[in-house]
Design a protein around this nucleic acid. Structure first.
Length: 468
RNA sequence: CGGGAAGUAGCGCAGCUUGGCAGCGCGCCUGCUUUGGGAGCAGGAGGCCGCGGGUUCAAAUCCCGCCUUCCCGACCA
């Protein structure tokens, strides 16, 4: 595969490998202000495809896109006690504007529950206005002490959904639907990433929520990464912002609200979840470029063949790029491997003499000869197999890195390399002790693996791990 | 924000101890030869030595402050 010294080996120094991939796959650069991120075209193309896939699912779940302001009056944050307490340390606050000190400081949104709550209160009058299902794609700012590209930046991009419902049951069911049909469906069917779905213990809950659902993935170094979250906010924000409706019996009642989000952190999850010693591995359904055609040298005949093959594949719905004459063959191979393009088609005179090209899979490195005429039929099948194999590999990795244990001490040992799964009743009284080992309870599940309604259910199991 | 390390060409680094011409490898540009796993030769361009102040005849080098990056903690999508 790639020559040594192109990338740091992940087994050697995982954080350095991650940075190498981000830099050499041309995903992102650090911005000039600490914690800020410049997302480069290739990284942004991946994010755009994530956005499209998530947005499609959000709309299928019935939510509509809208946009709320970046600037929020500081007083709004203060209306919900837990919310302001949770976010205060991370806020960026504007005190001066227009050359003058502001009478009331303005907060740069860390999340939009408060400002959206204010407008939900205005828009909702009747039970007929419910449910109100909103989503926005936006940037948010949460000041970070220890930033890392994509994983933790002071400004990041995300979608945040905000909904209001007439009853607890409706709100809870909707949050669960989003978690399963938007997030998990995206993770499984597009990102090809297996995760543990569950609820957060109270200590890890979103500030102001009564329940937080999470999808916890496993990274190449055995650390957990929260890939998406959905919150039931109960009536906390409805009471703080007077989001009330008249029921069909004429009673004034507070709504039940939810919020849910997934961010550019998913790009970090993609890198660390699927990447290998040769760089990024992008699942075919996500990949901005699914196939790269590489003529082995600059040559008119090879170029003609590449053009024809590209046209054939595009007609079959495949996203194709041709990379000719940009340096040596080996260099181009390595560059596209680092970028994780699923399939590479090598076009050279030796194969062509036999009517063939060579197709190489990024995930397995496997190469196979394919006839020119068959390529446009074979490629979609290969892409589909690779998509399925990546998901299977992710599931196998998650299973291999999840260890069932039965004591607190065993959990601490097992969490060195991944998830430790054990009864919540064993961990709950000693949860604070985990901190000393840099561990947290990532989520709670029912014994059958399903998502609990709340943390009060008996016989829950928990997953303990190191995390990002 | 606490502890540690570091910032010199696009990237990786040497030079700093003992102050005295700004260096190396890769990349980049031009030309030629090449191209089936990071090509070769020749020529060339590229620097506020992180920023600001101080010491000195003289600072990449010594001193002070700040900024940024990386690692380990505390906080988090």
């Amino acid at each position: 595969m790639a020559s040594p010294n192109v990338l740091t080996a992940p087994s050697d120094d995982f954080p350095r490998w991650y940075q190498d991939v981000v830099a050499k796959a041309e995903m992102a650069d650090n911005g000039p202000v600490r914690g800020t991120m410049v997302i480069r075209p290739y990284g942004y193309a991946i994010w755009e495809r994530m956005q499209a896939a998530i947005d499609e699912r959000i709309k299928l779940a019935g939510a509509e896109n809208a946009y709320f302001p970046l600037f929020i009056p500081q007083s709004y944050l203060a209306k919900e006690a837990e919310h302001v307490e949770g976010f205060s340390p991370e806020l960026a606050v504007v005190t001066h504007a227009g050359g003058e000190e502001l009478a009331e400081p303005i907060v740069v949104r860390p999340t939009s529950e408060t400002v959206i709550g204010e407008f939900m209160a205005k828009w909702i009058q009747s039970h007929r206005d419910l449910p109100l299902l909103l989503n926005q794609w936006a940037n948010v700012v949460r000041w970070e002490m220890r930033p890392r590209l994509f994983l933790r930046s002071s400004e990041f991009l995300w979608q945040e959904g905000h909904t209001a419902h007439a009853t607890y049951e409706d709100a809870s069911a909707y949050a669960t639907t989003v978690h399963r049909d938007v997030y998990n469906d995206f993770l499984v069917n597009v990102l090809a990433m297996a995760s543990h779905l569950g609820i957060k213990p109270p200590s890890e809950r979103f500030a102001g929520a009564i329940n937080t659902m999470t999808a916890e993935g496993i990274m190449g170094d055995g650390k957990a990464l929260q890939l998406a979250t959905s919150h039931e906010l109960g009536q906390n924000f409805a009471k703080a912002f007077d989001i009330v409706f008249q029921s069909d019996e004429g009673q004034s009642q507070h709504c039940w609200t939810t919020s849910w989000g997934a961010s550019t952190r998913l790009v970090g999850g993609l890198i660390m979840g699927h990447g290998d010693e040769n760089g990024l591995v992008v699942p075919p359904r996500l990949a901005p470029t699914q196939v790269v055609l590489l003529p082995v040298r600059e040559d008119d005949e090879l170029a003609t063949v590449c053009d024809r093959l590209a046209a054939d594949m595009r007609a079959a719905g495949v996203r194709v790029k041709i990379d000719a004459g940009r340096g040596s063959f080996g260099r181009r191979v390595t560059d596209w491997e680092i970028k994780g393009v699923p399939l590479r088609v090598e076009v050279g005179p030796r194969d062509l003499a036999n009517g063939l090209v060579t197709v190489a899979r990024r995930d397995t490195g496997e190469k196979l000869p394919v006839t020119l005429d068959a390529l446009a039929n074979v490629v979609p099948e290969l892409l589909e197999s690779m998509q399925n194999d990546l998901l299977a590999a992710s599931r196998a990795r998650l299973a291999a890195k999840t260890t069932d244990v039965s004591t607190f001490e065993e959990a601490i040992a097992a969490a060195e390399t991944g998830f430790a799964r054990l009864p919540w009743s064993i961990v709950e009284p000693r949860e604070k002790e985990l901190k000393a080992h840099a561990l947290t309870v990532r989520c709670l599940q029912r014994a059958d693996g399903s998502i609990p309604q709340n943390g009060d259910e008996p016989d829950l199991v928990c997953f303990v791990a190191r995390s990002y």
